[in-house]
Every structure is written in structure tokens, then in C-alpha cells.
Nucleic acid binder design. Structure first.
Lengths: 180, 180
DNA sequence: GTCTATACGGGGATAGAC
DNA sequence: GTCTATCCCCGTATAGAC
């Protein structure tokens, strides 16, 4: 858990750069400028890039915990909730997941481990909601596919995902639900 | 289209590093070493990093064209083909797609454009095979989700995807198929 | 707590020998 | 066509003033 608000701002900026421009451009200086600091100013709060990454992973853990708790409170809408979250590029969790995925892809094992652990918990909730492991897997994978899709369409409105698509997908998944 | 075999080897090495270790570690020097060259030796064939990226995108185009053609030849197995391809980490196309996704995520618009174009063509084939746009979307997204899943589990055998999972997913998708 | 200035290392790219 | 040597830029990190 982060202690202060300044640290939080820095992580927010880091997540923004990481998710929007990738690891290469998410430098310490760029992150510092993004939240109105100098390089050294940022390094006072996070004394190294490793520390910054660790701070991000720590926040990721918190956001996932909160999201799993929220999703568990409305089991009947779990599928809709999961897919809608994956589609919401503006949500702090979704941005964070994208950012953490970038770190994981570059060899950060903690980030990868936390992402896997989150996936396991979301999956468990989907199994409960749908009553079928295979169908739950399909729902989970579709959600991850949505994230990927947003990733490669960034900015380029290309009409692949229309307005009603989310509901269509939910309907396909939920209508196959066996009696609970 | 690439002309020689040396260029191909270099692209292969670049794809390998990019997909396995991310953009950060896929440096020109690392790529050169990976295929037994020095930095300058590589730069003789691809005079800049931009040129290397462009070469990769060009190969991506070729691989997608070939794959779309192959998939179109067995429409009745299109779903199985697409999901199995997404799951095959060793396939040249899958490795290339992962590599190109890394470039796209870091702002390479050509890579993103080619990936989107491929997605559109695979989607069209899935619509044909399944007879339903929404179901085809679900199949496509599930395939992309599989890629993502492999991405964050790299090396860490974690049992989420078992042996029979692929067939389960195919069955779920194909059994919902309306009369063609 | 934040700044300027600086040291250090590494990646991209060029020059020139072989 | 491939190498060694070199240059420059930039990202990380530290020192020290305010």
C-alpha cells in the first residue's frame, strides 16, 4: 500500500505513459515531467526504476483486490461486469493491467505473477456465475481478447467493435448457462 | 518481400528477442549477437532500427497472407484452426504476431495497421465458418485472449490451460452454430 | 522535498580497415 | 560483407545547493 498522495500521482503518471506509449517511452524523466517534477524530484520518492516498478505492482495488487471484491458482490452480472471492465479503456484498473502487462512482457516476474493471480480469481468468479468451467474460460479469454483488441486499435476507430457488441457477447455466453 | 536468406535470419532473431524478452532487450546488438553478427554487420543489411522494423512488418504481411489462404482452404475447421494457431507458441506466425504487437504497442503504426488488417480477414473467415457475426467475434476474441494468456504465463506452467481445453472451446463455439 | 549539475553506462549509428 | 573503433545521445543514478 502506498502511503502518500505524491507517490500515487507518480504511479498514475507512470501507468499513463506505460499504457499509452509503451515501456520504451515511459522513462523516469518523462514520468517526472508528466506529473510536474524533475528527474531527481521523482527519484526522491522512488529511488530507482525498480522501486517505481515495485510501487506499480503494489498498486496493481490493491486494484485487483478491490475489483474482485466488487465483482463478487453481483454474481449474476459477473460476465457483463468482466467484459465491460475489459472494454473500458478509461478505468484505472484496465489502464493498470495494460501497464503491468507491459512490465510482465519485459521480464518483470512479480507483475506477471500478480496478473496470473488476478486471472485465477476472476476465473473462479466466472465459473461460479456460469456454472461451467469451459464456458467461464471462454468468457475470460474473450475479455482478455477485448483488451488486446483495444491495444492494437488505439485511436484508430475502425468499426470492429460496435455499440451493441458487448451485449451480444454477454448474451451468447449467458444463454449457454446450464441450470445452476 | 525479403530478397536474401541473411536478411531472413536477422528478422528471425529480431522476432525471437522481441517476442521472448520485449522491446527493451531486443537491441540491435542483441539481435546481431543472436544470429552471429556484430552490430555493424547487421547494420549493413538493415541500416537503421526503422529499417529493421519495416523488414519485420513486411514479413508479417507475408505470413498473414499465407495463413489466411491456408485457413480459407478448410472452412469447416476454421475455428479449430484459428484457436490452435493462437495457442501454438512455436509457430512462426504466432511469434511474429507477438513481436509485431510489441512494436504496435510502442507506437509503430504500420505494425498496428497490418495486425488490424489481418484480424479483419480472420474475422471474415470465422463469420463464414460460423454463420454468425457475434459468435465469430467471440471466437476471434478468445483466440486473442489465448495469446495474451500465453504472454503472461511464459515459462510458468500454471495449469490454467489443460490438454483438452482447446477442444472444449471449439465445441462450445461450433455447437452454437446456426444452420449454414 | 525539489532543484541543477554531473558521472556513468548502453544503444544507435558512422568511418574505415580487411 | 563483416569487422573494430569511435561518436553522440539518452536514460539511470548520485552529489550537493536551496
Amino acid at each position: 500500500m502506498t502511503t502518500g498522495s505524491k507517490q500515487d500521482n507518480i504511479i498514475d503518471s507512470y501507468v499513463a505513459l506505460l499504457s499509452e506509449q509503451g515501456l520504451h517511452d515511459a522513462t523516469i524523466e518523462a514520468t517526472a515531467r508528466h506529473c510536474g517534477l524533475s528527474k531527481a524530484g521523482l527519484l526522491h520518492h522512488f529511488p530507482s526504476r525498480q522501486a517505481l516498478d515495485a510501487g506499480l505492482v503494489s498498486r496493481l495488487r490493491t486494484l485487483i483486490d478491490d475489483d474482485v471484491a466488487a465483482m463478487a458482490q453481483a454474481p449474476e452480472r459477473a460476465v457483463h461486469y468482466y467484459l465491460a471492465s475489459s472494454l473500458d479503456e478509461a478505468s484505472p484498473l484496465e489502464r493498470m493491467v495494460v501497464a503491468a502487462t507491459r512490465l510482465a512482457q519485459s521480464g518483470n516476474e512479480e507483475a506477471a505473477q500478480v496478473l496470473r493471480s488476478g486471472r485465477d480469481r476472476w476465473y473462479a468468479l466466472l465459473v461460479e456465475a456460469l456454472g461451467d468451467p469451459a464456458l467461464a474460460k471462454l468468457a475470460l479469454l474473450a475479455g482478455d481478447g477485448l483488451s488486446y483488441h483495444l491495444d492494437i486499435t488505439r485511436g484508430a476507430r475502425d468499426g470492429f467493435m460496435g455499440e451493441g457488441t458487448l451485449d451480444e457477447l454477454v448474451a451468447l455466453l449467458v444463454n449457454r448457462q446450464p441450470a445452476a
